[in-house]
Design a binder for these strands. Structure first.
Lengths: 350, 350
DNA sequence: AGAAAAATTGAAATCGCTTTGAATATCCGC
DNA sequence: GCGGATATTCAAAGCGATTTCAATTTTTCT
């Protein structure tokens, strides 16, 4: 079997107590013995048994996350995980992932994760305006950081990006260019970020006394395929949109395809601004034409949330952990002033 | 605090022993008391403390995975995780994820994961022909299932798809159509799957006595961007390829862009067969033109690997766990016979 | 009915680590 | 060179489950 504390202590001729303290950096152990202990531990490859330690200390050394299988499980998640895990690894904390298929399973999964004590805290993703999962975790007294925002009438820790501001600025820019029919391909209805984006969209329009047209707003998951269908049907409409706000780079890909298939050209016939979560394998700068984006690295968000989690575990009150990051608007080739539209042509032809 | 076994036992007027046995389905407890216990446990919301249980039983109830951050961390991973986690969840096993940035960190991460006893087994991804990580886990006596294959001269459990056969068939098909300059955009050199794919490619060519041209084979990560660059430079060559074998759907996207940017058309000027890991947000059928693929669901692979892990933990010898799945070749619009090429035109013009 | 067998239940040890409270060494000033 | 800090070290008591071995009931069989 592998070496345990007892063996190490025996080997050193010391008590478990002293060895344990030496390894954990307690002050009441002589410097020389600490060195001795550390050296021996390293040489013999001693590693404390995580469960035993946890049982004794009550801390699990892990952060929990529940991933909903099919639906919203995509590239966003892996990028986020990369950031989160990278930062947590520095503190020797790892990530316990539970995957679920249905929403019902999801609540159960949170309950299970909380009760098993395998995690010290959790991260909650794309919450709804009123999020039951957050409510549940709050009631269960499980520390958690929200990636997004929710209002359950309690003090919860959250990190979010300025979705509303981003979309408002993007919309305004398109309006400035002269666009009047701007489609918003938004996320699933009810999610806070989607609502915030819609709010930004509406704000930009209403501040110029322009009407909001329901036919130009859709809510769906961010996949290439769905976006393709939605954009396609929009482009077939009588008054087709002249510009698209795509909720993610995947969405942008789908819209792009629809535009091309309709025989139109992105950057001249139609404009687009996509939200870019910064995936290393989908670079807006390398697209053709290059894509204008509202940009905010989801990986950086992961890193920051890891830090907030650590603060939370260190005792900082949840109510004191609120952070909103701004979103950049990066203009590239996919945005341009709209062409004189069809009706004009029709008149001259008649 | 939350309810523990002792409390539950006290509440029921039974001993911890009996309660524990009742809950864990041991046969030596009277049916009536078992019902009583289960009922009370459910009503009071009792959940065993995972660490305590683990300490006592020695099983962690978790599977470990190490994800390399920046590089190969993408959509493949999340799909795979979805499958793996879904199946494992049925057995109340969860996934402990560690993320690392450098390769050096990676070995250390495996060592750490193994020593901490937080996981019962691990999954190892895209191994090299001789994989040090596999070697390490083997030496550490940590049970693991390889997603892919390696040869470390030991009995290891693995699951893989028939990469060689898939590429051989795809290449043969392109050859049948008349293509002679077929580019292979392969994965990172040294990874077993990439080597197998190359072997399949070579086999198809050599079985018709056709030469293999180094300029037509590249090795890189599977990202849209890299693929775009590679394809672009290939298309600028004197004898440009008339067909592409793309290592993944991301790669295909990049190649597609390069083709279009070169003023060529996919499905007529150039053909392509991409390997499709079946991402819900990138459907080959919905692309334009629809994409011919070699298809094998990475999510299904995850599910199957979960089962193999469970078998491994149940005591099945690693040497008895080998599984190779076939890969479908699905032909769609992106493949066609090559056009009569430039030189012909040149002659007639002179 | 009484002994042996089978079915249930319990007390206590154990898993490997942390930590409290007591014990022993080492240091200080005078 | 001695009493009282001050530093170090240790023995033993948890942490919350499982499990061994023994004790107690209940059944079964003559």
């Amino acid at each position: 079997m592998t070496m345990k504390l007892k063996d190490l202590a025996l080997h050193l001729g010391l008590s478990q107590t002293t060895v344990s303290r030496a390894l954990n950096g307690y002050p009441e152990v002589k410097e020389s013995t600490r060195i001795l202990v550390n050296e021996a531990a390293a040489r013999l490859g001693y590693r404390p048994n995580a469960s035993a330690r946890m049982l004794a200390t009550g801390r699990a050394g892990a952060i929990g996350m529940v991933l909903r299988g099919s639906e919203e499980f995509g590239p966003h998640t892996s990028e986020f995980l990369g950031g989160l895990g990278g930062r947590l690894a520095e503190e020797e904390v790892d990530i316990l992932v539970t995957t679920v298929d249905s929403y019902q399973d999801e609540l159960a999964a949170y309950r299970r994760a909380a009760a098993s004590r395998k995690v010290d805290a959790m991260v909650l993703h794309s919450p709804k305006l009123f999020d039951e999962r957050a409510q549940l975790l709050f009631d269960l007294k499980v520390p958690f950081v929200l990636h997004g925002r929710t209002d359950i009438g309690k003090e919860v820790a959250w990190f979010d990006i300025d979705n509303q501001g981003a979309v408002e600025r993007a919309t305004s820019h398109l309006l400035d260019l002269g666009h009047r029919r701007i489609a918003l391909l938004n996320g699933v209805k009810g999610r806070t970020f989607a609502e915030h984006r819609e709010a930004g969209y509406r704000l930009a329009l209403s501040s110029r006394d322009l009407p909001v047209e329901a036919a130009l707003m859709t809510n769906s998951t961010f996949t290439d395929e769905v976006a393709f269908r939605l954009a396609q049907s929009m482009l077939e409409q009588n008054h087709r949109p002249t510009a698209f706000l795509a909720g993610s780079m995947m969405t942008a890909l789908g819209v792009f395809r629809a535009i091309r298939q309709a025989g139109l050209e992105l950057g001249s016939d139609v404009s687009m601004i996509a939200h870019d979560d910064v995936f290393p394998y989908l670079n807006a700068d390398n697209m053709y034409p290059t894509m204008s984006t509202t940009r905010s690295s989801i990986r950086q968000a992961g890193i920051r949330i890891a830090e907030l989690l650590l603060q939370l575990l260190a005792g900082k009150p949840a109510g004191a952990i609120h952070e909103e990051w701004p979103v950049e608007l990066v203009l590239r080739q996919s945005t341009a002033a709209p062409r004189p539209i069809a009706p004009a042509k029709a008149y001259s032809a008649s």
